[in-house]
Amino acid sequence: MTSPDSFSLAGEHTLLLIDDDIELTDMLKTYLEGAGYNISVANDGESGLAMATASDHIDLILLDVMMPKMDGFDVLKKLRVSHYTPVLMLTARGDDYDRILGLELGADDYLPKPFNHRELLARIKAIFRRLELSTSGRSQQDLVVGGICLSASRQTVEVDKTPVILTGTEFSILQLLMLNAGQLVTKQDISQKVMGRKLMAFDRGIDMHVSNIRKKLSAVCKTDTIRTIRGSGYMLIRAV
């Protein structure tokens, strides 16, 4: 997205699956290849990170948390230094800490284990659909609001000509807020239009993504441009 990395938005996609469960990765590889994806597999964090950073042709990473040599959080932290390839974290069911930390470190989405294969496929398709929508139709226009400049065609964000590096999900959320500047955008709208699913009760994913956007913007612009409408959603302030 907003980095030197390029993502193919049409045709076959290449996925990197990083998980130490060999039986699971073999099963998922067969299933996802049957769905039309090219799949590469790494069974530990170190080799997964090496594969992720060595190639510019990986469109999405499926990343487990608990792994030998290097856990998923360390992989993600090191990956985000130079690469903004979309990452779908595979977390332990019911472990909110894993989910929140993954999103704080720059994951685009998470899916608790054990999961249904169809749910995994739906999450993958939603991420790619989000990438396609962000560069097409009405969303193609360049946006300037409150000193923030977002270019959909170049997939870049700048504040006072200073680049702000966002993940794909963060980019799409900011784009939605800018398209509706001065108006309330509910969490339900963000979840459906950006994440591609209904907002679930107690899901803090949207809050974490917005928090990350705020931190990155505030590092350049000292005024908080995103207002929280308690219990409802968010609003991007027009004038700063």
Rank of each mutant, 00 (worst) to 15 (best):
T2S: 15
S3R: 05
P4S: 04
F7K: 10
S8Y: 13
S8F: 12
A10T: 15
H13K: 14
T14P: 08
D21P: 07
D21T: 08
T25P: 10
K29W: 09
Y31W: 08
Y37K: 01
I39W: 05
S47D: 15
M51A: 15
A52F: 07
T53E: 11
D56N: 14
D56K: 11
D59R: 03
L60P: 00
P68R: 06
P68E: 05
G72R: 02
D74H: 14
V75C: 05
K78R: 14
L79F: 08
R80C: 07
L88K: 02
R93T: 12
G102L: 02
L105K: 09
N116W: 06
H117G: 12
R118T: 14
R118M: 13
E119P: 10
E119T: 15
L120M: 04
L121V: 05
A122H: 12
K125A: 13
I127D: 06
F128C: 00
R129V: 12
R129W: 09
L131V: 08
S136N: 11
Q140N: 12
V145R: 03
I148C: 10
S151H: 07
R154T: 14
Q155G: 06
V157K: 03
D160P: 13
T162Y: 08
V164R: 00
L166V: 06
G168Q: 01
I173D: 03
Q175E: 06
M178C: 04
N180M: 02
A181R: 01
K187Y: 04
K187S: 10
Q188W: 07
Q188M: 09
Q188D: 12
S191T: 08
S191G: 05
V194P: 05
L199V: 10
G205K: 04
M208G: 03
H209E: 09
V210E: 03
K216T: 08
T225L: 15
R230N: 10
R230V: 15
I237Q: 11
V240Q: 13
